[in-house]
C-alpha cells in the first residue's frame, strides 16, 4: 500500500485510475449482462449484439470500433474483417487477446472471459466478414482413430509441425525473442483453430491443403503422445539432448565425484 500512496501524485496516476475505472465498468457490465440466457435460447442475433458490446469495451481500442484495425498510431491492431469466429475463439479463450501490453508475441494466459462471452465475441467478429467458423467437436475429437491414422498423424506432425513445436510439442525458438508455444495440454479445439487460422506468426494450414481428416489425425497423435507414459523414466521436459547433457553432468559426474570424495576421504580418527 505504501507503494500506491507514494505514487498517487504520479502523472500517470490519473490515466491509470481512468483505465481501472473503465475496466471495473466493463467487468461489471459483463458480469451483469444477461449473456447466459442469450446463447441458451435466443438466436445468434442476440449473441452478436452481446458480442458487439463486449468488443467495444475490450477490443475496439486496438482493433477499431468495427474491427477495421488500426495500423497507425501508438496502439495498433490488425483488422479483424474476415478472420472469422475460429480465430476469435482461439485468441480470446486462450487468453492471448486482449493483449496485456504490446509486444513481440501475445502469450497464453488465463482467459478473462466466460465461455459464453467468447462465443458472443466470436459470433460478432464472424459478422464482420466471412472467415473460418469454430469447428464442430466431431472435427477435432480424436476418438475412433485407428492405429494407422495415428501413425499418419505422427508423420504429418513431424512434417508440418515439429520444426517449430519440437518432436514432443514442447515448443521452440523463433527469431527475435518470439517462440512457438508448447502444445502440451492444448485442447483439440484450439489445435484445430490454430491450424485453420494461423494465429500470430504461425502459418495457416487450410482445410483445402491439410484436410480435416489430416488435422484430426495430428490432434489424435498429439493426444496419444502426451497421455502415454515416458517409457524410460523422468523426461526433463522433452527438450532433447541439451537437457540430457546437463543431467549427465549433474546427476552422473556430480554424484560420482561425491562418491569419489567419500572413497578417498580419511575417516574419523579415534583421537
Amino acid at each position: 500500500m505504501r507503494f500506491l500512496t507514494a505514487r498517487r501524485r504520479h502523472p500517470a496516476a490519473k490515466a491509470l485510475i481512468l483505465v481501472f475505472a473503465l475496466l471495473v465498468m466493463g467487468g461489471l457490465y459483463s458480469a451483469l449482462a444477461p449473456t447466459g440466457k442469450s446463447s441458451a435460447d435466443t438466436g445468434t442475433s442476440q449473441q452478436v449484439e452481446e458480442g458487439k458490446k463486449l468488443f467495444a469495451v475490450s477490443c475496439a481500442s486496438c482493433h477499431g470500433l468495427n474491427g477495421e484495425g488500426q495500423v497507425s498510431g501508438s496502439i495498433q491492431g490488425p483488422p479483424l474483417v474476415g478472420v472469422g469466429a475460429a480465430a476469435t475463439e482461439f485468441q480470446v479463450s486462450t487468453g492471448r487477446m486482449p493483449m496485456a501490453h504490446p509486444g513481440q508475441q501475445a502469450p497464453q494466459r488465463q482467459s478473462e472471459f466466460t465461455e459464453d462471452e467468447v462465443l458472443a465475441l466470436a459470433a460478432y467478429v464472424a459478422t464482420l466478414g466471412p472467415g473460418p467458423a469454430i469447428p464442430e467437436p466431431a472435427a477435432y475429437d480424436p476418438a475412433g482413430l485407428s492405429d494407422e491414422d495415428l501413425a499418419r498423424g505422427g508423420e504429418l506432425f513431424r512434417t508440418n509441425c515439429s520444426a517449430c513445436h519440437n518432436f514432443e510439442g514442447a515448443g521452440g525458438a523463433l527469431p527475435n525473442g518470439k517462440y512457438a508455444p508448447s502444445l502440451i495440454g492444448v485442447s483439440g479445439l484450439h489445435l484445430y483453430e490454430a491450424m485453420i487460422t494461423g494465429p500470430q506468426q504461425m502459418p495457416v494450414f487450410s482445410d483445402g491443403v491439410l484436410t480435416p481428416d489430416d488435422k484430426r489425425a495430428i490432434i489424435g497423435y498429439l493426444d496419444r503422445l502426451h497421455e502415454q507414459p515416458n517409457q524410460g523414466g523422468f523426461a526433463f521436459g522433452g527438450l532433447g539432448p541439451v537437457a540430457e547433457g546437463l543431467w549427465a553432468w549433474v546427476a552422473g559426474i556430480g554424484v560420482l565425484v561425491l562418491f569419489a570424495i567419500w572413497i578417498a576421504a580419511k575417516g574419523v580418527k579415534a583421537r
Binding site: 505422427g154 508423420e155 513431424r158 512434417t159 515439429s162 520444426a163 517449430c164 513445436h165 519440437n166 518432436f167 514432443e168 514442447a170 515448443g171 521452440g172 525458438a173 512457438a180 503422445l225 515416458n230 517409457q231 524410460g232 523414466g233 523422468f234 523426461a235 526433463f236 522433452g238 527438450l239 532433447g240 539432448p241 541439451v242 540430457e244 547433457g245 546437463l246 543431467w247 549427465a248 553432468w249 546427476a251 552422473g252
Partner: peptide, 30 residues
C-alpha cells in the same frame, strides 16, 4: 540413471525422413 532417467526417446522422434526436422535439434553434449 538408465532406470529412472529417460534418454534419447527416439520413438517420439520417429524414423529419419529428409523432409522432417524438430525444434531443439542438438547433438549429444560432447
Amino acid at each position: 540413471m538408465g532406470g529412472l532417467m529417460q534418454i534419447n526417446p527416439l520413438w517420439t522422434y520417429g524414423p529419419y525422413n529428409p523432409a522432417q526436422v524438430t525444434a531443439g535439434s542438438q547433438p549429444d553434449w560432447y
